[in-house]
Simulated assay, not measured.
Amino acid sequence: MPPRIMNVSTLERPIPDAGDAIRHDWARDEIEDLYRLPLLDLVWRAHGVHRAFQDPHDIQHAGLLSIKTGGCPEDCAYCPQSAHHKEVRIDRDGLMAVDAVLEMAERAKNDGASRFCMGAAWRQVRDGQAFDDVLAMVRGVRALDMEACVTLGMLDENQAHRLAEAGLTAYNHNLDTGPEYYPSIVTTRTYQDRLETLKHARAAGLELCCGGIIGMGESIADRAAMLQVLANMNPHPESVPINVLVPVDGTPLENAPPVHPLDLVRMIATARIVTPASRVRLSAGRRDLSPEAQAFCFMAGANSIFHGDSLLTTANAQRDSDAALMCMIGPQD
């Protein structure tokens, strides 16, 4: 029996149940119509889907570490690690030692993280000692009984299989934005390049962590277009990070206007509806959100945060404020 299409124009039909809500045939205008619903109606729908597929009280904490910083040959307009952005002040560091990375992973676990994510500012994975070290990092994180995720740029089929053999849980490779707007943000690789890397990771049996960024000058239609690509993957990415641009001086997007928190809520709610079984990760930009805005994001379907002082190279919410937030939204004595 084909899945039932949700009526986005009224609230007369009930939220689909777990048996018929997952789809892989979303039309772009259908997703855009969802995004444009009255906000409380949209969040009501998203929260119902969230409860049908997720434990609403389960918010995963993940650690994130830049294991190789700066000097990336890509020209991503948002990224301070690009070698193209000469005015950005950033310390360039080579690949960290395996022991140092595992020490940070253990610290993250002690702080409550169940997932540890490692990012290297590479255009693509190259076989050799550096990749061998990353494989050792993955094995070490898994030995700590944590999920392991890496983002290393493009990779081929063999490299994806080697990561899987090392025990990697998920490969992160974000789409950033919709396919039509993508050339305005990145010119050094194509959208198809990104999709090929995701295909290699999936073929190796890895989970996918794939989302994007809002606030880069894209339209609502572009946001819907990105979600359409994700929602029509079969299976959906297990993890969908939703990032808000953090403008960095010296990058082409340094003067981008701020994103209103309620636009983020809309994006999270729409992502929750179209990828109901995925973890929707409240990612970059969270430091600038009030506790109330973050709670609204959780209500809309977000169920993961990154903790720690930084997200690769930009500031993140402080551990103490995260602990206070979790207490505020949890059961009260």
Rank of each mutant, 00 (worst) to 15 (best):
M1S: 13
R4Y: 06
V8T: 15
P14R: 12
G19M: 10
G19Y: 04
D20Q: 14
I31N: 10
E32P: 00
R36P: 03
L37P: 02
P38H: 03
P38F: 03
D41T: 10
L42S: 05
L42N: 00
V43W: 12
H47W: 05
R51K: 14
A52G: 03
Q54C: 14
H57E: 13
G63H: 02
L64G: 04
L64K: 02
K68V: 01
T69F: 08
T69Y: 10
C72H: 12
P73K: 02
E74V: 01
C76K: 07
Y78H: 05
Q81Y: 10
A83Q: 02
K86A: 14
R89C: 05
R92V: 15
D93P: 00
R107F: 04
N110L: 06
G112N: 11
F116S: 04
C117D: 12
M118N: 08
G119S: 14
Q129V: 06
A130Q: 14
F131P: 07
F131I: 02
V134D: 09
R142P: 03
A143I: 04
C149A: 07
V150M: 08
E157T: 12
L163T: 06
A166V: 07
G167E: 10
T169S: 15
N172Q: 14
N172G: 04
H173N: 06
N174D: 13
T177I: 09
G178Y: 06
P179E: 12
E180C: 02
Y182P: 10
R189E: 05
Y191L: 05
L198F: 07
R202N: 03
R202V: 00
R202G: 04
A203L: 07
L206W: 10
G212K: 09
G217D: 08
G217I: 07
G217L: 11
E218K: 09
I220D: 13
L227G: 10
V229P: 01
V229I: 12
V229C: 00
A231Q: 06
M233C: 10
M233T: 12
H236L: 07
P237D: 08
E238I: 03
S239R: 04
P241N: 06
V244Y: 00
V248E: 05
P257E: 04
P258S: 11
V259L: 01
P261N: 11
L264H: 04
V274A: 05
V274E: 01
T275H: 04
P276L: 12
S278Y: 10
S278P: 01
R279S: 13
V280F: 09
V280W: 06
A284L: 04
A284S: 15
R286L: 00
D288H: 11
S290E: 09
E292C: 02
A295E: 14
F298E: 12
M299R: 03
N303F: 07
I305E: 03
F306P: 06
H307P: 00
G308P: 09
T313I: 08
R319V: 13
D320F: 07
S321I: 08
S321H: 13
A323P: 03
A323Q: 15
L325G: 05
C327E: 15
Q332T: 02
